[in-house]
């Protein structure tokens, strides 16, 4: 089952490698990983997407929680939550027809063209991972994707629930 683990940890050297270590040492999978400092610069928030059953998720959250640098761990997919991912994708724009088709799809997916060059557009799109997959697929039907970069999922619980120190 797809799970989204969210971690609040000290923004200290080595914290990230320890978390990644828990996954690699125990053979757990990392589908995506997204990390950055929070509004409080001394803390980092990290979101990991993984495929695991209940027993493995229990171990992952316990083992991550055990790390000295980690303050809180939660499984966002356990309850209602908002998740978003951002993708930047560069596509070839060889003809007027293709440029028009891309522009249409950008509007439909509520994406944005953030850079224009003689032969390509760079497009930014946010949403769930599924939406990003769908957008990439749609683009690939009308033109060639030159390169793409995704941030990985980040998310928050809905409502009152929050990860605070």
């Amino acid at each position: 089952m797809r799970r989204i683990i969210s971690v609040l940890m000290e923004n200290a050297p080595g914290s990230l490698s320890r978390i990644v270590g828990v996954f690699s040492q125990r053979g757990y999978n990392v589908d995506s990983l997204c990390v950055a400092p929070t509004d409080d610069k001394s803390l980092s928030r990290l979101t990991i997407v993984t495929e695991a059953d209940d027993k493995v998720i229990e171990q992952i959250t316990k083992q991550v929680n055990k790390l000295i640098d980690v303050l809180k761990v939660t499984d966002l997919s356990d309850g209602h939550h908002v998740e978003r991912e951002l993708m930047l994708v560069k596509v070839a724009t060889r003809s007027e027809l293709i440029r028009a088709e891309i522009k249409r799809n950008v509007d439909i997916f509520r994406a944005q063209i953030v850079d224009v060059d003689a032969n390509n557009y760079t497009i930014q799109v946010t949403g769930t991972s599924d939406k990003l997959d769908a957008f990439a697929h749609t683009l690939s039907q009308s033109t060639e994707i030159i390169e793409a970069s995704r941030t990985g999922v980040c998310g928050l619980s809905r409502g009152e629930k929050a990860l605070r120190p």
């Binding site: 050297p13 080595g14 490698s17 320890r18 270590g21 040492q25 790390l67 000295i68 640098d69």
Partner: peptide, 14 residues
């Protein structure tokens, strides 16, 4: 050393 020992320590400091 911090990297080498990471899987077998409770914590480490550089």
């Amino acid at each position: 050393m911090v990297g080498c020992s990471r899987p077998i320590v409770k914590h480490s400091f550089l």
